[in-house]
Design a protein around this nucleic acid. Structure first.
Length: 291
DNA sequence: AACGATCCCTGTTGGC
DNA sequence: TGCCAACAGGGATCGT
């Protein structure tokens, strides 16, 4: 699943390939779902001939900052991701095709060519991703409705605590809700709760100040380590580092996808339950439901 | 307003 | 070997 670390890997790729270049060619798939019924002509017109000044990210959202507005905004959903041809010495792949070198990639939704010959493509097999145009991404929906960025913008402990401690929903659901804090997905939410020793079903308002402090620390730790490791590769998702190697964070996962396997801390079998139609993995010994 | 359930979407997987 | 239901989950939407 593309979560904050994987989206950040894409940000680095986009910066390397696109920043400072001028967009010389734009190709759009006919996909009214991914493009939210935005006419391909309008999208092409907004990008063609524009110079890329920079790349922005907030939570799991990504956008290109152009010399004129509006700007293209990207969300990966479950299977979206950016690709660059291997000939450029850089490549980032998602959507289960890490062994494929095909260009353009399967399920391609967007292709950009730059004045220096560089290319980028965005693909999305299951069409849960979105490509939009926004005059000012940060101040418009959906990015304006996001909470603090889970890595760069995480608020003070007091503010962080207030966001969670005033809610009665399970803490796992609160971490997945992008409203208070944005960037965590199912994998890193489970990992952070494990590191903090908090049961995913515990209501937000049942967390002690100590719980909240450990959770805040764990969120930063989990995301930082994942970014260092180039994101997480799963069976059907692979995020490749700029040099083409696979993300190696999968080996670091402590609970996600490890149902019935022994906890690394205590040996107790990891349990898997469903919260808000999402799988949740935790160690019943290290993450007790009762304090 | 907050919460929980349901739906969207489709490649992949696993059982028969 | 082939078929097909089940599964995955980020986010939107709807009912309570």
């Amino acid at each position: 699943m593309p979560e904050l670390p994987e989206v950040d890997a894409a940000r680095v790729l986009l910066r390397r390939v696109a920043a400072g270049r001028t967009i010389s060619r734009v190709w759009c798939a006919r996909d009214p779902i991914v493009f939210e019924a935005l006419p391909p002509r309008r999208f092409r017109q907004a990008l063609l001939g524009r110079r890329v000044r920079g790349v922005g990210r907030h939570g799991k959202h990504l956008w290109l900052e152009l010399d004129e507005r509006p700007w293209p905004c990207f969300h990966f959903g479950m299977t979206g991701g950016f690709h660059a041809p291997r000939t450029q010495g850089v490549r980032l792949v998602s959507s289960g095709h890490r062994t494929e070198d095909a260009w353009p990639p399967r399920f391609v939704k967007l292709r950009l060519t730059f004045d220096d010959g560089g290319e980028l493509a965005m693909s999305d097999a299951r069409r849960l991703g979105r490509i939009r145009l926004r005059a000012d991404p940060r101040s418009e929906s959906p990015i304006s409705e996001l909470g603090f960025d889970a890595l760069l913008g995480l608020p003070s402990l007091a503010r962080f605590s207030a966001l969670l401690a005033e809610r009665s929903a399970p803490v796992k659901a609160l971490l997945l809700d992008q409203g208070p804090i944005s960037g965590l997905g199912n994998i890193y939410a489970d990992e952070a709760l494990h590191i903090a020793g908090i049961h995913p079903l515990r209501p937000g308002n049942s967390l002690s100040p100590e719980d909240l402090e450990r959770l805040r620390t764990a969120v930063v730790q989990v995301l930082s380590i994942a970014i260092e490791n180039g994101g997480t590769s799963l069976d059907d998702l692979a995020y490749l580092l700029p040099d083409g190697s696979e993300g190696e964070n999968l080996d670091q996962l402590l609970v996600y996808g490890r149902a019935d396997l022994p906890c690394g801390n205590c040996g107790t079998p990891i349990e898997r339950i469903v919260i808000r139609a999402r799988s949740s993995h935790f160690c019943p010994q290290c993450q007790p439901i009762a304090p």
